[in-house]
Amino acid sequence: MMSILVRDNGFAEDRWEAEGGLFIDLEKFGQDVAEKVSENTCVDIPNDVHIDSLKGLFENAAMIRIPFPSFADGRGFSLAKQLRQHGYEGTLRAVGHVIADQYGFARSCGFDEVEIDNDLAARQPEDQWLARLPQDDLSYQNKWLVEREGRNF
């Protein structure tokens, strides 16, 4: 099934694989990937993995993909936050059942983009996602961030 990518500038087609990117499961990573260049590698990690077993990815995965089996399963938010807290600088993608109302939360936790299927994209069209851009989200967390950085809200 085709996937749709949601980013701050709206919907886009997912061209990762078309452009030579690979999706590799965390288990396989390490065995298969040693010689592959890291900018082609997206590692799929489960959402119940301990951060310590992800340290090896930091230099070697251009992208990490975290699954959302259901929008009510918020583990991905904390996992993304942890990856950022521990210094991962590559792309973070949420994949699965994320709803438009969660887009700002996902971005605030460190995700760059969200991958959803066509059905969900049809049910929750682009405008519903763009209504929840992180910079428009009136949240206390964002406000504190902004105030610390001395910008005006």
Binding site: F77, C109, D137, Y140
Partner: peptide, 10 residues
Amino acid sequence: WSTDHPEFQF
């Protein structure tokens, strides 16, 4: 702090 905390809504 807890209102709309992005990490802890779910």
